[in-house]
Design a protein around this nucleic acid. Structure first.
Lengths: 164, 164
DNA sequence: GCATTTTAGTAACATACGTTACTATTTTTC
DNA sequence: GAAAAATAGTAACGTATGTTACTAAAATGC
């Protein structure tokens, strides 16, 4: 979406006129959060889409890359990426379909299926890591280290409030 | 989702060991943003669901309430709520189905369909405004006014970077 | 050691939203 | 004033994810 935030701010102010008592700062902050989100998602996905990836697939590849033998379980993807086990299965399906990962039954526990990065997946990850990092740096390039630390502190405080 | 953010932080650190050069602060901030989101959405929707609402329907009702004669056009909902015109149509369908709003063809412009809050919708909005406001206040209750202003400033800076 | 509970992964169903394409209508351009 | 462009709203198709339910397997409790 490339719509402005302004119409919403105006609506908030008109509601204040109509039914006073709007906690304007709190409402604006919350709505800004949602306003930023599709743009942030779009920004991250844009950097990935030419490789047939989106941010979820990419983060899953990284989660695998971060493990010994580039291997983990779908439930680890679920835990690490904060997604449902169902969605982890979908992501795994996609990674396997592209040839970036391969499923391996776990001998020690037949409920589990190991997932291992293939050579192709490893090469993709290592060739794209610099690109991804540049994108993350660019995203926050208007912030100095103190601001980023402060932002993190406040986001963690919000997260704590929300039970995370 | 009630998963911890910790597994992701650990993954980020293991990637640093494996392939140094991670912009940790930037990655953590970005991933925190996504980690908070389902919790924030859940928090806002929880407060609404007993009335058969979610946050989108609620915000649309407010957008209507904010207008003269509690009336606007679906494209105004699209603009105010930063959503597609298709989604605005869905939201309107839902509001009409519940009896909270009614569609009215526009005599001056036959492309447009006016949407007006019904008496039932008006009563719902005015009865729920205090509840919604209390939820927004509670959400940010750990923040003092200076922190909220700083958070807003930084979020707007991020938004500007993302082209909003 | 057996019953109960929990975990792992997936199928079926559900929610929420965007994109593309379309028709009808209005606005703009020349 | 007519052609071209833009807007409004919706249909069809697509993306992404969660919830509920299920089976199989492992862990726990007694």
């Amino acid at each position: 979406m490339n719509k402005s935030f302004h119409p919403l701010e105006q609506a908030v102010d008109r509601i204040e006129e109509r039914f006073p008592g709007v906690p304007r700062q709190q409402v604006i902050l919350t709505r800004l959060y949602f306003h930023i989100l599709p743009r942030l998602t779009g920004y991250l996905n844009d950097g990935m889409k030419e490789y047939g990836l989106n941010e979820s697939l990419w983060m899953s590849l990284l989660a695998m890359y971060a493990c010994p033998h580039q291997s983990l379980y779908p439930s680890d993807i679920s835990d690490t990426l904060d997604s449902s086990r169902t969605n982890a299965t979908r992501i795994v399906d996609e990674l396997v379909r592209h040839g970036w990962a391969t499923r391996i039954p776990c001998a020690a526990d037949r409920r589990k299926i190991g997932l291992e990065l293939t050579q192709q997946g490893l090469e993709l990850v290592e060739s794209l890591l610099p690109v991804s990092r540049a994108n993350y740096r660019a995203l926050w390039s208007d912030f100095d280290p103190e601001e980023m630390q402060l932002m993190e502190k406040m986001m963690r405080k919000l997260l704590a409030r929300l039970g995370g």
